[in-house]
């Protein structure tokens, strides 16, 4: 499974530019599902036919990144955020464009108090010698993502874009496992989650499932002096209770808990004070689609090195397989 994860995290895909990820997943699932299609927003929808309930599983393909807004006369790039980018987190990071161009993020050194730093006061240096030089490599409107590897160490993964390639990997793994079920399963790899849960809404509208699960990451409360939160990595996948976008439908939540208990799958509960998931836009689609979520506890979310535990990932696969059966 690490192989799948590794391939997914190494593929370029900021919001609105999910094509490469979609192509990769399409290749992985060819022959394993009955139908594969895409829609106007670029969602990839893989269907395993069945006669029972229509169940939508959603994991978003897009990752956070930056977008170039201006190239100056010396070849430095000004940029804005695509999704939630903290200026302190991106400071000093390497970013990479779709064509492989690497840049380093730095800031105007006369800003005074570093605490007041904003993205507008930062720039990307792609080692260009001039404006023309820079424009050969990058255009205004191009996006870039964190440049960082994926490491498996001590049963845990350190990588960029665990949010939400780990969810994509879980869906891919389930689809490959081909769990026996009467239900019709929609493996939906959504676009543009990080900029406002956009893809999931139109995908859900097209599918009109009976119920939906969003598979995404959640923050944890297990690092030094962090805000209190009852989620730890390694303690099992987290069943979504609430985030900023949704309160899980009680029947979905209860069904997940029942599945976990029956199959002895370790699990915990997610109440996310900040941030939302695709479940938020799915559950208000059309006349309402009962939705919930399974979240992988993840440290340092929206950073170039997010950390998850492989056991949680494997248990999430088991839990969701039990859910859709």
């Amino acid at each position: 499974m690490f192989n799948i994860i590794n391939k997914l995290t190494h593929t370029f895909g900021p919001s609105g530019n999910e094509k490469k990820i979609a192509d990769l997943i399409r290749d992985m699932l060819k022959g394993k599902v009955d139908e594969i299609k895409t829609d106007a927003l670029g969602n990839l929808i893989c269907i395993k036919k069945g006669s029972g309930k229509k169940i939508m599983l959603a994991a978003h393909m897009d990752e956070i990144g930056i977008i170039v807004s201006y190239i100056d006369e010396k070849g430095f790039l000004r940029f804005s955020n695509v999704g939630g980018i903290n200026p302190f987190v991106i400071l000093g990071q390497r970013v990479v464009f779709e064509n492989g161009t690497v840049g380093v993020v730095w800031y105007e050194e006369n800003i005074g108090d570093i605490k007041s730093i904003k993205l507008e006061k930062m720039y990307i240096d792609i080692a260009a010698k001039s404006q023309a030089d820079a424009e050969r490599l990058v255009s205004v409107g191009d996006m870039a993502v964190f440049e960082s590897g994926t490491i498996l160490q001590n049963g845990r993964i350190i990588s960029k874009s665990m949010d939400d390639r780990i969810g994509c990997a879980i869906l891919v793994q389930i689809a490959l496992n081909q769990p026996r079920t009467e239900n019709e399963i929609y493996y939906v790899f959504t676009a543009q989650e990080e900029v406002g849960l956009r893809g999931a809404r139109t995908a859900a509208y097209g599918i009109m499932p009976d119920m939906a699960l969003a598979v995404d990451v959640t923050t944890t409360g297990d690092t030094p002096e962090c805000k209190p939160m009852s989620v730890r990595i390694g303690d099992g996948p987290a069943i979504k209770i609430k985030d900023r976008s949704v309160i899980a439908h009680p029947q979905i939540k209860d069904r997940l808990i029942k599945c976990a208990e029956e199959h002895n799958i370790p699990h915990q509960f997610e109440i996310l004070v900040q941030g939302g998931t695709d479940a938020g836009s799915i559950h208000t689609t059309a006349g309402g689609i009962p939705s919930g979520g399974v979240a992988i506890p993840t440290r340092n979310v929206h950073n170039s090195a997010e950390i998850v535990d492989m056991k949680d990932v494997e248990n999430a696969v088991k839990l969701i397989e039990a859910f859709i059966r």
Binding site: P228, M229, S230, I241, K242, I247, I271, V273
Partner: peptide, 17 residues
């Protein structure tokens, strides 16, 4: 409110709904 944690002492942590 919604319960977000149960402490060893029995006190409940919570957040707003």
């Amino acid at each position: 409110l919604i319960v977000t944690g149960i402490e060893d002492s029995g006190f409940l942590r919570f957040t707003a709904v």
